[in-house]
Simulated scan of single mutants.
Amino acid sequence: MANLAGVSIKTVSRALNDAPHVSAEARERVKAAAATLDYHPNIAAQSLIARRSFLIGLTYERPSPSYVVELQNGALARLEESRYRLVVLPFRNVADRPAELGRLLMRAGLDGVVLAPPACDQDELLAMLDKHRLPYARITPHSAMDRGIVLAMDEVAAGQTVAAHLLELGHTRIGIVLGDPSHAASAARLEGYRRAFAEAKVVIDDRLIVTGDFTYDVGYKVAERLLCQTPQPTAILAQNDDMAVAAMAAVRDCGLSVPHDISIAGFDDSEVARTAWPQLTTVRQPVMQMSWDATDRLIGWLDADRKDGNEGEMAFARRGNHPHELVVRASTAPPKV
């Protein structure tokens, strides 16, 4: 292969292992030669030689299926054609047992891990990873923003944006379906709602605030509670799209329609928001891009050329900020006169 590519054996090894100090031209020649010879590197052998597993973990907790798919697709897209492989590690009730998750991650033989909410905000877990020197990237954390690699989105501002949309349409009696309290995003989005109400000089009726858990089934049950209020809300803000779609179903089961009788807005802009009828007004959170970015920066950390005295330093930005976007669709309209 070295002869075919016109480079040294050492350069072949560096190019196939995505190591630094190889020119783009030489790297392309080596990969072209490998394709011609139908050569495929043995990842297990590479792991033994480098004393690394080339495994990247991704851990999350029971969010909506669409959210999980976007998380996984983002990481997988970045790892395509790389020497790293993805290990998916779903884990329930992270806030109640962060140390147990930490032990699971330690046993998994990972080179690094991407932490989705709520794992990204667990101090005990982060301390364990720091102690054992396992690199990590965090997607939308809300605390300790100086730890690890951070991919952030301003969820307070995003919550304010979607609440302001309903208020600008003329709604003042708005039901709010919160997410799982163990996810810091729930409190952040509620803070954004409160800011929008304060700016519009509208008082939030706390009796119209109910707690869900980001799932369809619980979202349906708590939406039913909102619809039993007298008078009923004219709009419902749900903290993710699954609960918003559940609220739409509850409205229809009460013999009402969306948005003629009740407007509904969600959060995430997941696939279900686009396939629901009517299509759902929501906040677009770039989950797939954040997952891609988190994985990319984590690999950059792992593959950095570390020199004596600089171990652990990163030659790239530790933080990336991603924008949100309000997507207005047919599920919201002015209240009935």
Rank of each mutant, 00 (worst) to 15 (best):
K10D: 08
T11C: 12
R14Q: 10
A19K: 15
A19I: 00
H21K: 13
A24V: 10
A24D: 14
A24P: 03
R27S: 14
R27G: 12
K31Q: 11
A32L: 07
A34I: 03
A35M: 06
D38H: 15
Y39P: 07
F54P: 08
L55Q: 12
Y60I: 02
P63Y: 06
S64P: 05
E70Q: 15
L71H: 08
L79E: 00
R85Q: 15
V87T: 13
P90W: 06
R92F: 06
A99G: 06
E100P: 02
G102Y: 03
L105W: 12
R107S: 15
G109R: 10
L110E: 07
L115V: 09
P117L: 13
P118W: 06
D123W: 00
K131T: 14
R133L: 05
L134H: 05
P135I: 08
A137D: 07
R138Q: 11
S143C: 00
R147Y: 01
R147G: 01
G148H: 08
E155F: 09
Q160F: 00
A163D: 01
A163G: 05
E168L: 07
E168G: 14
L169E: 03
R173F: 03
R173H: 09
L178G: 09
S182W: 02
A185S: 15
R189E: 00
L190W: 04
E191A: 13
G192C: 00
Y193T: 05
R194G: 03
R194H: 06
V202H: 09
V203R: 15
D205L: 05
L208F: 04
I209C: 11
V210F: 09
T211Y: 01
D213N: 15
Y216P: 06
G219Y: 03
Y220G: 00
A223G: 10
L226T: 02
L226E: 01
C228V: 08
C228M: 14
C228E: 15
T234P: 10
A235H: 10
I236P: 05
D242V: 07
M243V: 09
M243D: 10
A244H: 08
A244F: 05
A247R: 12
A250M: 07
V251S: 02
V251M: 03
R252P: 07
L256M: 11
V258C: 02
V258Y: 04
H260L: 09
H260F: 07
D261T: 09
I262L: 01
I264C: 04
F267Y: 05
A276K: 04
W277H: 13
P278K: 05
T281F: 10
R284Q: 14
P286W: 11
V287N: 14
D293W: 01
R306A: 12
R306D: 03
G309A: 04
E311C: 03
G312D: 00
M314V: 14
A315S: 14
A315C: 06
F316H: 15
G320E: 05
G320V: 12
H322P: 01
L326G: 04
V327I: 14
S331G: 07
T332K: 05
A333T: 02
A333R: 14
A333D: 04
K336R: 15
V337H: 11
